[in-house]
Simulated scan of single mutants.
Amino acid sequence: MSAMTDSARDRRTEVRRLIDSMEHAKIISDGHFSALGMLITDASLSADEPALVECQDGLQWLHRHYLDVNALDGAQREQRGRILGLIDVVHWALKRLPSGLQLALQPDGHAARFMLAVFRRQGLSNQQLAAELGTDETEISRVGRKLLSAGVVWRRKEWRQNAWDLTPRGRHYLETSGLLPADADIDADIDADAGPGRRAEPARAAETASRSPDGVPRHTDTSRPTRPTRSGEPPRPAQG
């Protein structure tokens, strides 16, 4: 948890340093806007409210420099427009934070159990979640829309079914809200072949025991008897 706190503190410091640099620059460069845009994105995904508040205050301070200018030239009008655009982005990022939406979930409620189920196994469908929570798919859709609007889950399509994943913001909310059980494996290995955020499943015993040197499972058909062969040849299955 300390690493996350240090990261958030560094992000807030970087926002402050960047805003100060933009304030004293004669012309705010594209590099300034790009760097600030990336910081806003990172802070939003990480639910880093202090960094977003720092950014909002700094951008509003920058915008004040354009209020007392009677006639702005073309470059100044463009800079003011980009600053106003970023202020809007930060405003909505703060509104979508779990704290800003007052997302206080009851541990035994459907919303909290929905998030915990997806934390344990990402990519669950509406039908699977309904079975997990002991409810119907209509309730799952309703709860899913609420969590989706809070930015703590995201929804994708797998063929004709919804598949639900936990966002970084949702993971952060579970870690800081006390909803995770004490023995939850937060740093569980991720299966790179299973898609983003999915946890690795243990390999089947038969495949683990029989793999070629290059890691490809050998498929041995033991249903057919083998017949003797001439010396030096491997046994071949008997023809059915």
Results as ranks from 00 to 15, higher is better:
D6S: 09
R155K: 15
T13W: 06
A182S: 14
L52T: 00
A25I: 07
L133Y: 05
D187E: 06
L97D: 03
G197I: 07
L174C: 07
L72N: 02
Q239S: 14
G74V: 04
S99Q: 08
K146Q: 07
T167E: 01
K95V: 12
N162F: 11
D214W: 02
T229G: 10
R12V: 05
R160Q: 12
H219E: 06
E49S: 04
A192Q: 11
T208K: 12
D214L: 09
G178Q: 04
G134E: 03
H91M: 08
G100E: 00
K146N: 02
E233W: 01
A93E: 10
Q102P: 02
M1P: 09
R121K: 12
W92M: 10
A150Q: 03
T135R: 08
E158Q: 13
W164F: 15
H110C: 04
T222A: 10
P202Q: 06
S46Q: 14
K95I: 06
H219C: 03
H24V: 11
A194W: 03
A75I: 15
S231I: 05
A209C: 07
A104D: 09
S2W: 10
H91R: 14
L124E: 11
H32F: 09
L103C: 03
A206P: 05
Q239F: 10
A117R: 01
V153D: 05
G31S: 09
Q127V: 10
H91I: 00
F119S: 11
A188W: 00
G123E: 05
R227T: 13
Q239A: 10
P228N: 07
W164Q: 02
V89Q: 10
V53P: 00
T220D: 11
M38V: 05
R160E: 09
I87E: 12
D42T: 11
S29M: 01
D191F: 12
P202F: 06
R156H: 02
I190R: 15
R160W: 12
T222F: 13
D221S: 08
E14F: 03
A112Q: 04
R198K: 13
T226L: 15
V90Q: 03
R96N: 12
L116P: 08
G215P: 04
R12T: 13
V69T: 03
H63K: 08
P225H: 15
S99L: 04
Q128T: 15
V143M: 09
G144K: 03
S125A: 14
A35V: 02
G170P: 05
P168E: 14
A3N: 15
G170C: 06
S212V: 01
S231T: 12
L84F: 02
A47W: 03
R96E: 10
L174I: 07
